[in-house]
């Protein structure tokens, strides 16, 4: 869920501010126990999403999943306690998620990642190496399509052998292949003299 070409007023705000606001709103929502106020706030959250002109197609799948879970929660809470508190709880969660969607959909992935790295920067003092953290994050993203391909290839190969539904026959070659990719990449980094320790010490 990434801000895809969102140029609204929300996209112009710094990520840290939006993140902080979301935190405050989330805590605030737990202090409210009336379904009337929460309904109004839900409406506000929808208005925020609308005013930020987010791409609602991106929201369809996550919303379906969320509503499904909330429906189950609503019914079991209603039976256990009162329907009133069930409604409060479900409205609160839905509102919170709507505000969270508003932040996620108006913040670029880069801005969000940068914020996380800022938040984590005190870890430097306990020995974490920022260069290695960046390397790890970017390599992980880079490896995802490669591993997806490896996974589908292994599955196809094992399907041909009639082993497609044997999880072990898929997982062992996949892990071995991943370890090999990791070794090749580590060697390639070494060969090019990648050295993160110098910059940090």
């Amino acid at each position: 869920m990434i801000a895809a070409h969102n140029t609204s007023y929300l996209a112009k705000l710094p990520a840290g501010l939006k993140f902080g606001a979301l935190l405050v709103v989330s805590i605030g929502l737990y202090l409210i126990g009336s379904w009337q106020i929460l309904s109004v706030l839900l409406l506000v959250s929808v208005l925020v999403l609308l005013s930020a002109r987010v791409n609602f197609r991106q929201l369809r799948m996550p919303l379906v999943t969320l509503l499904l879970i909330l429906a189950i929660v609503f019914v079991s809470l209603g039976i256990q306690t009162t329907w009133d508190s069930a409604l409060v709880s479900v409205l609160r969660l839905l509102t919170m998620c709507m505000f969270a969607y508003a932040v996620s959909l108006t913040t670029t992935f880069d801005a969000m990642l940068e914020l996380f790295q800022q938040v984590a920067s005190p870890l430097r003092h306990v020995g974490a190496n920022p260069a290695q953290i960046s390397l790890g994050l970017s390599l992980a993203i880079r490896f995802i399509p490669e591993l997806k391909r490896a996974y589908l290839e292994v599955r196809e190969a094992q399907h041909a052998r009639g082993l497609a539904n044997n999880p072990l026959a898929v997982a062992v070659p996949l892990v071995i292949r991943s370890l090999r990719i990791a070794e090749d990449t580590a060697e390639a980094l070494e060969a090019r003299g990648y050295d993160s320790a110098e910059h940090s010490k």
């Binding site: 390397l135 790890g136 490896f143 892990v175 991943s178 990449t185 070494e190």
Partner: peptide
Amino acid sequence: QTRNTVYVAIFAAMIAAM
């Protein structure tokens, strides 16, 4: 250290790919 980072990244990618 670099090797460890690569191992961490590849398993993160595996979790994601799955």
